[in-house]
């Protein structure tokens, strides 16, 4: 359903305007509809996932006018006028975002269901804190539950994405690994 259909003249709901991943959108929908459902159902941006519906798991994390939010806890009316970024808006010009690249190389994603939200939380962290230490990384993604990785490789991925210089030292923070063929 594209914007024009949602905003059909017989639709009684107020129009809500925002910019998603650089594109201006107008939707006419119940104002209490969760931003999460608007993204997924009305805008077909299904990269944002629902894990719990109560702001606990972070799978639905998106960026709303510069802040990280759980889109399951935002009634769409409160997004009126906002600038929204979802996982679909992270890669630029067909190139993976450095975080996506790091997650791919370092095993930051396993089943992938927490990954979109995790990437948004990590991107938000790096915007506010370009060279986070391990404690800052832990805090930055503490609202994003991952049941597959034990987080270790996510910490490494985020650290590796910060900058080429810090990547080398960051990976040694958490895990030593050795493969001794015997």
């Amino acid at each position: 359903m594209r914007t024009s259909e949602s905003a059909a003249p017989n639709n009684p709901w107020p129009a809500v305007r925002f910019v998603v991943n650089g594109e201006a959108r107008i939707v006419s929908i119940p104002p209490m509809k969760r931003l999460l459902d608007v993204l997924r159902e009305d805008l077909q941006l299904t990269g944002t996932k629902e894990g719990c519906g109560e702001g606990e798991c972070g799978s639905c994390s998106v960026r709303l006018s510069g802040e990280l939010v759980n889109s399951c806890l935002v009634p769409v009316l409160q997004a009126d006028g906002a600038v929204i970024q979802t996982v679909e808006g992270l890669a630029l010009n067909g190139k993976l975002h450095p975080l996506q690249e790091a997650f791919l190389q370092r095993g930051g994603a396993q089943c992938g269901i927490c990954t979109p939200g995790m990437l948004m939380a990590a991107a938000h962290l790096l915007d506010h804190c370009p060279n986070p230490d391990l404690a800052q990384i832990r805090e930055g993604i503490a609202g994003n539950l991952c049941r597959c990785t034990g987080f270790i490789r996510i910490f490494e991925s985020v650290a590796a994405a910060t900058s080429a210089q810090s990547a080398g030292s960051a990976t040694t923070l958490t895990t030593e690994q050795s493969h001794h063929a015997r």
Binding site: M32, R34, G53, E54, G55, C72, L73, V74, P75, L77, Q78
Partner: peptide, 26 residues
């Protein structure tokens, strides 16, 4: 409703009975 971190949890759980809400956000 301000930031929604309580009201929206109740809403998703089907526990929100309030028919009319007013936003304090912004």
């Amino acid at each position: 409703i301000a930031g929604g971190t309580e009201v929206m949890v109740a809403f998703a759980a089907g526990r929100l009975t309030a028919p009319k809400l007013v936003s304090l956000w912004g």
